[in-house]
Nucleic acid binder design. Structure first.
Lengths: 249, 249
DNA sequence: GCAGTTATCTGATGCAGATCATGGAAACAA
DNA sequence: TTGTTTCCATGATCTGCATCAGATAACTGC
C-alpha cells in the first residue's frame, strides 16, 4: 500500500523579475567564464548586458526566431528544448545560473534552432550577439573558454546519441537521474533531493520516451528502494545502486 | 529478377601517404577557415603542422587516447565514430578535406571521447592542441570561426537526437542519404552517385539501426525506383522522391 | 577462371516500449 | 470543504525493429 508523498521541493517565490545591479556584478564576476578578468573589465562587460525577468513557464525564445541574442542565466533554471515533427518535445538541457545559451555564432545561424523556457521564475542577462562578439574580440581568452564550453556540450550531445542508440529506457533514466542529482541535488533527511520541480513528463522528454514508460520505470526504482518520488519531485535514496544501473552493461 | 550491379565508385589508389609541401599550402590557404589570413600568416601556420599519411581503414586515434592533437583533413575522407557498450559503433560524421577534428579544447578534455579512422587513403595535417591554441591567440578571428564551426556541429548533433527519438528508420535513412548525396554526390549517367564506398554497415552505423534493417529499407527504396545500389555503393535516381521521404510527416 | 572471403538479401521469430484506456491521488482555487 | 485540474500508476494491446539464421551475389587473390 504505497502512497505518494507531498512535495518536499519548495519553490522560491520571491519575485526575481529584477535582479539588482549589485547582484548582477556578483553573478558575472563569479562566473567561471569571466573569472580571469579584472574587476574593471567585468564592470565594462556588465554594462553591455541588460536584464530581463521571466515567469515560470515563460518562453524566452522559440525555434525560428531571429537568432540575435546571447543569454546568461543569473537566477533560476532554464530549459532548452527542441520539438519533434510529431509535436513532442525533447528536453536538451536544464541550465543553472552562470550558464549561457542562445546564439554565440554570429556568422552561421540566423534563426534559433531550439527553444528556451524559464523552468522557474528567472532573471536572465541578455546581450546582442554582435556586442558579445566585440567582447570576445577584446578578450580573446574568453573565446577560448567559449570554445571549451561548446566542445563539452558537443560531447554531451554525442553521448546522448549513444544512449539513444544503444541503451534501454531504464538505463537512460538512471543516467539522467544521476546527472540531475549531481547537478541539482540537495541533502534532505537521508535522501538526496533533486531540487527542482521534475515531472514524469520532464523525465520522458529528457530520455526520449513516453510519460507512461517513465512512470513505470520510476515505480520499479521506487519498489527497489533506490528512489523516493511523488508529484513533480524525486529524491535519491541509494545513489550507489543508481550508479550501478547507470553503469552496468 | 533484380541483380546487384558492379560498383561504379572508383577508388583513387594513387599513393597519398605524402602530400607535397606545395599541396599543403594550397590546401591550407583554400580552407574557409584560414581564408581571411594573409599568405604570409598562412605560411607561418603551415610550418607548425606536420603531415601524416593513413591507409584505408587505419586508425588515427581511439577513444581514451590522450587528447593532445588537432587534425585537418588534407586529402581523403575521415570517419568519426563512437562505440557503444555493446560493441556496436555509431558513425558520427564523415569529414572531407578542409574539416578539422580531434581536440580543440585545450583545457577541458584530456582524452578523446571518440575515434577517428581513415575511410580512404588520406593525408592529414596534424598540430599539437597547445600550438593550435597559440595560433588562435595570434589570430583571434580564427577562434570566432572555430566557435561557429562548433556551434554548427552541436546543432547537427542535436538534430540527430531529434531523429533518433522521433523518426522511423526509413526516414532517418532518407535524411542520411540526402545529406551524403549533397555532400559527396557526383553526377554519373543519370544518377547522383555517392562517391565514397558506402556499405550497409556504414549506413546502419550512421542511422543507429542494424545492417539487416538498413538492407531491407534500401531494397524498398530500390524497388520504388528512388535509388540504385550495390555492394558498397549507392546512387540516387530520384532525389525529389528521397526528399519527400526525408521531409514527410 | 576458380576458391575463398565479404557484403548483401530475405525470411522467421521475439520483445521493448509505444499507444490506448481508466482510475486514483496531489495540488489548487473558491 | 468541495469541486476542479493536473499529474501519476497501471493494465491491455499492438508494432517497429532487433535478433537469429541461411542463401546468394560481388569482389579478391591466386
Amino acid at each position: 500500500m504505497k502512497s505518494r508523498r507531498k512535495s518536499p521541493v519548495n519553490l522560491v517565490t520571491t519575485d526575481p523579475h529584477q535582479c539588482s545591479i549589485d547582484l548582477r556584478m556578483r553573478i558575472l564576476s563569479r562566473l567561471p567564464f569571466f573569472s580571469e578578468l579584472s574587476r574593471k573589465a567585468v564592470e565594462g562587460i556588465n554594462q553591455r548586458f541588460i536584464e530581463v525577468g521571466y515567469e515560470l513557464g515563460e518562453r524566452i525564445y522559440t525555434v525560428g526566431d531571429p537568432a540575435e541574442k546571447l543569454y546568461v542565466v543569473a537566477e533560476g533554471k532554464v530549459k532548452i528544448l527542441q520539438h519533434t515533427a510529431s509535436g513532442r518535445d525533447v528536453l536538451l538541457d536544464i541550465l543553472s545560473p552562470g550558464e549561457f545559451f542562445g546564439n554565440i555564432a554570429a556568422l552561421g545561424a540566423t534563426a534559433y534552432n531550439d527553444s528556451a523556457e524559464a523552468q522557474s521564475p528567472s532573471c536572465i542577462l541578455v546581450i546582442r550577439s554582435d556586442a558579445f562578439r566585440e567582447i570576445l574580440d577584446e578578450h580573446p581568452e574568453l573565446a577560448l573558454k567559449a570554445l571549451d564550453v561548446m566542445a563539452a556540450r558537443l560531447n554531451e550531445a554525442n553521448q546522448r546519441v549513444i544512449q539513444l542508440s544503444s541503451m534501454p529506457v531504464e538505463k537512460r533514466i538512471a543516467i539522467t537521474l544521476r546527472k540531475l542529482a549531481l547537478k541539482l541535488g540537495r541533502q534532505k533527511d537521508s535522501m538526496l533531493l533533486i531540487d527542482v520541480p521534475l515531472s514524469r513528463d520532464d523525465l520522458s522528454e529528457m530520455t526520449s520516451t513516453t510519460p507512461e514508460t517513465a512512470s513505470r520505470v520510476m515505480s520499479q526504482l521506487q519498489s527497489a528502494g533506490i528512489i523516493e518520488s511523488g508529484r513533480q519531485w524525486v529524491g535519491i535514496l541509494d545513489l550507489k545502486a543508481l550508479e550501478n544501473l547507470a553503469e552496468k552493461d
